[in-house]
Simulated assay, not measured.
Amino acid sequence: MNTLRKITSYDAVAFYWCHGFTHMPRLATCSRMISRLGDGGLYLALGLSLAMFEVRDGEHFLLAGLLAFALELPLYLLLKNTIKRDRPCDRFDNFDAFIVPSDKFSFPSGHAAAAFVFATVLSHFYPSMLELSYSIAVLIGLSRVMLGVHYPTDIAAGAILGTSIATVALNVYAL
C-alpha cells in the first residue's frame, strides 16, 4: 500500500470516527458557529479595530496580517486547484455534509490555513493571546471535519500552510 493510500485510509477512518459524535444536533450547531469564526470577517474586524485603537502594535498587526493573507490565499488556491481532492461529503455515498462547502475541493482547508495565519500573527504581536488564538484555530479546523467538508489531513495541511506563511510574512514584515 503506497503512502497516499495509507493517508487516504487513515483519513476515512478518522473522518468516520469523528462522525460517530455528530448524531448530536448540538454538536453540529456548535460546529457551524465555530466554523463561521473562520469565514474571514472577524479577522478583518479585529485587525482594523486593533489598528485604530491599539497604539503600540495595532497597525503593525494589521499590516503584517494583510501581508500574510496576501501570501496565503494564492498559495492555498493553487494547492487546492492542483491537488483537486474530493470533499468527504462528495466522496462518500452514505454521508451528507451539515453545510454547503464554499468550493469544490478539500485539500488543504482554507478555513484552517486562515485560522492559523491569524493565530500566528496575533500571538506574535500579542503573546498573551497564544493559547487562546491557537485553541480557536484548532476548533475551527475540527469544526470543518465535524461539518463533513474536510478530512483531518486537510486540516493538518491547512495548519502547516497557515503557520508557515504567517512566519514568512512576519519575517518579511520585520525587514
Rank of each mutant, 00 (worst) to 15 (best):
N2C: 01
L4S: 07
K6E: 09
I7N: 02
D11H: 03
V13Y: 03
F15Q: 05
G20E: 11
F21G: 09
T22Y: 04
M24T: 06
S31G: 05
S31Y: 03
R32T: 06
R36P: 00
L37G: 02
G41T: 10
L42S: 04
L42T: 06
Y43A: 08
A45W: 00
L46W: 01
S49M: 15
S49G: 15
A51L: 12
M52W: 12
F53I: 10
E54K: 06
V55A: 15
R56K: 12
D57E: 12
D57H: 12
E59T: 11
L62F: 11
L63A: 07
A64W: 04
A64P: 02
G65D: 06
L67M: 11
A68G: 10
L71I: 04
L75T: 04
L75M: 12
Y76D: 10
K80N: 05
N81R: 06
T82S: 15
T82L: 14
K84E: 05
P88A: 14
C89T: 09
D90Q: 12
F92W: 08
F98G: 03
S102E: 13
D103K: 11
D103H: 10
F105V: 01
S106Y: 10
F107V: 08
P108M: 14
S109I: 08
G110C: 09
G110S: 10
H111P: 01
A113M: 06
A114F: 06
A115G: 03
F116T: 02
F116M: 05
T120L: 07
S123A: 12
F125E: 09
S128D: 11
L130H: 05
E131S: 14
Y134W: 09
A137I: 02
I140P: 00
L142R: 06
L142K: 03
S143T: 02
R144G: 05
R144C: 06
V145T: 04
L147M: 07
G148I: 14
V149Q: 04
V149R: 07
H150F: 08
H150S: 03
P152S: 08
T153F: 15
I160M: 09
L161D: 02
G162V: 01
G162M: 01
T163K: 00
V168L: 13
A169Y: 08
L170C: 05
L170W: 03
Y173W: 13
Y173L: 10
L175M: 12
